[in-house]
Design a protein around this nucleic acid. Structure first.
Lengths: 123, 123
DNA sequence: GTGGAAGCTGGAGTGCACTCCATGTCAAGT
DNA sequence: ACTTGACATGGAGTGCACTCCAGCTTCCAC
């Protein structure tokens, strides 16, 4: 039986995820990424699953979730299917924060627009 | 002639702006705030103008402008009316970044929503 | 006039999230 | 075989934006 498992080199994952290699190593070190597979020489070979998880990490990071909370989420994921309810709860809370961020940003943007208009009135 | 100028104690400015006293002192130290007026005993008495400027600072800070750039903006403001064009330019650039932040956040939020839906499908 | 809160200064310390570095091994194209 | 680039490790360093502290002074309500 032929078994094809696609793996990614560090450089490919950097390309794919936008994280730097140092960041990937850092994430692995702190446990945000599970120990990554290695080839015979000890070099990292990321699985499809690793890359998928990194997509989630990117999303959470870019929406301002602190690493400590991503770590909690990672633990839930590792703990298995019985944590799905907790994961939903965590993501929904985060979603509300993201909603708040957007609303806040939009509000501040109005202030900026007003300021620009005010300045324009001087020209 | 009676001349009433409203002034604010540090505690009042903390209340009004949401910055901590340490932060206000820090902002003054780095020049984001012009040297604040003092009473005879050397305690700070913030002017209406200070408080207004702090409102701007809060807006820029909360939309992610780095201090270095706020400092540049502060310098333009101090330099006088001939910098109004530059101030508009700076604010418009910042506005575009804010726009980008909002768009990005909204996009990431879709990802989170999908993930939540996916998790829900397991229940 | 006294006690507790508020304020002062200069400087050290914190927390987060990386980022860089020295030194060494391994891979792979020519 | 050789060279060059990718990757490894452990640990130190960075940058940003505060935040805290010691030791002292001043304000103000009772």
């Amino acid at each position: 039986m032929l078994w094809v498992v696609s793996v990614y080199t560090p450089a490919e994952v950097v390309e794919e995820t936008g994280f730097t290699l140092d960041t990937l190593r850092y994430y692995e070190k702190i446990g945000l990424l599970e120990p990554v597979g290695r080839n015979s020489a000890g070099q990292r070979r990321f699985s499809e699953e690793d890359v998928g998880w990194l997509g989630m990490v990117r999303c959470l990071r870019d929406t301002g979730m602190p690493i400590a909370e991503m770590l909690r989420f990672a633990e839930l994921v590792r703990a298995g299917d019985h944590t799905i309810q907790d994961r939903i709860k965590l993501l929904e809370e985060h979603d509300r924060r993201v909603e708040g961020q957007i609303a806040n940003l939009a509000e501040r943007q109005r202030y900026i627009h007003n300021k620009i208009s005010y300045y324009r009135s001087f020209l």
